[in-house]
Design a binder for these strands. Sequence first.
DNA 1: GTGGGTATTGAACGATCGTCCAGTCACTCG
DNA 2: CGAGTGACTGGACGATCGTTCAATACCCAC
Lengths: 193, 193
Amino acid sequence: MASSAAEVPEKDRQARILDAVVRLLGTGGISAVSMRAVAREAGVSLGLVNYHYADKTSLVRAALHWIEQQDIALVEPDPSLEPEARLRTALGRVAEPEFLTTEYLSLRLQLWALARAHVEFEQINTEAQKRYRAGLSRLVRAARPDLSKRECDKRAADIDVVQNGLWLTALLGLDRAAIRRSIARCEEIALAP
Amino acid sequence: MASSAAEVPEKDRQARILDAVVRLLGTGGISAVSMRAVAREAGVSLGLVNYHYADKTSLVRAALHWIEQQDIALVEPDPSLEPEARLRTALGRVAEPEFLTTEYLSLRLQLWALARAHVEFEQINTEAQKRYRAGLSRLVRAARPDLSKRECDKRAADIDVVQNGLWLTALLGLDRAAIRRSIARCEEIALAP
DNA sequence: GTGGGTATTGAACGATCGTCCAGTCACTCG
DNA sequence: CGAGTGACTGGACGATCGTTCAATACCCAC
C-alpha cells in the first residue's frame, strides 16, 4: 500500500475545496454554501475544511480572491495584437462562450448579491471592479493615445455599465442580438473620436 | 377593554409580514430570511407566519408578487403628459432618488440572485421583466408611432440592458455622472430617428 | 526504527433552522 | 349564555448549521 502505483494525480485539496465553494455559490447562492456541502462537493471530510480555513467567513473570502485572480486575465489580452485590435478583443471577450455561460454569469450575480448582504465581502468586490476598470481604461488609452487619462477612465466606466447590464440581461434571458448590439455600443464608446 | 379608544391603526398583519420579508431580503439576502427573523421584524409570533403561509416557499413567493405589484407603476406614468415627455419621464424615473436608493437596488439584486438559485422563483422574475419591457415598448411606440412594433421591442430590450447595468453600477459604487450619461443613452436609443 | 510536524478524519457540542400543534383570545351566531 | 370559527401564540420536534476536538494517517529528518 505504501508505494501504490495507481495514484490519481489528485488536485491540491485546498484548490478542490475552493472550487467546490465557487460551484455551490454559482448554482445555489450563499445559502447553498455550508461547510458540509462544500466538503461533500470537494470529496473531503468536514474536518479538513475547517482545518484549512478557520471559519466560514475565511473560506468564502479565500474563494472570492480565488475567483478574482482568474478574472484579471479578462482585460490582459494577447500582446501580439495592435492596440485597437487588442481593445476590440477584450470587449468582445465578455460575450465569448467561455464567459457567457450560465454558470459564470450566475456566479457573478451571486458575488454581487453577497457583496451587498455582507460588508466584509463588499470591499473585495469593489477592489476587483476598480482593478477591472483600470485595465479597461489602459486598453482604451493604448488604442487612443490622444485622449486624456480622465476621458479614458470615463469611457471605461461607461463600458463597465453596459457590460454589467449585458451580463445581467444575458442571465435573465439570453438575447444574442441584444448582446451583439451592446458590444457594438461598447466599441463605439471606447473608440469614439 | 372592549371599546378601547387608543387603538393603533395597525397595518394588516399579513402586509407587515411581507414587508418584513422584503426588508430582510434587501438587506441580508435570502439567508437572512428565516421564519423567526421575519416574525421578529414584523412584530408577530412565529406561529402566525406559518398560519398565513403554509411554508417558507409560499411566504417568499407571496413577497415576490407583492414587490412586483409595486413595481408595475414604474412604466405607467402620468397620462396628462404628451407621449414623448411621458417616455422621458419614465426613463428618468429609474434615476429618481425614490428608486435609486441603496435599499431598492439591493432588493433588486437579491431578487435576481434568488431567481437564479431557485427555479421556483425564476419564472416570477422572468414574467415581471417581460411585463416591464412590454410597458417600455408601448411607451416608445406612443412617442414614435411611425416605428414598427418589432423595432420598439428591440429598443425596449436595449434600454432594459442599459438600465439593468445602470442599477447594478449604481449599487457597486454610485457614480452620478455615469448614471446621467446612461440615461441620456437610453433616450438616444428610444428616440433615435 | 523513532519522533514530530502536517494533513486528514468523523464524532460531538450547542445554536438555529423549518415545521407542527395544542391551546388561548376575540368575536359571531343561535 | 354556550358553541363555533378564525386569528394568533409559543413551546416542542427533528434536521441541519458552524465549530471544536481527540484520534489517526502520512512523511521526512534523525
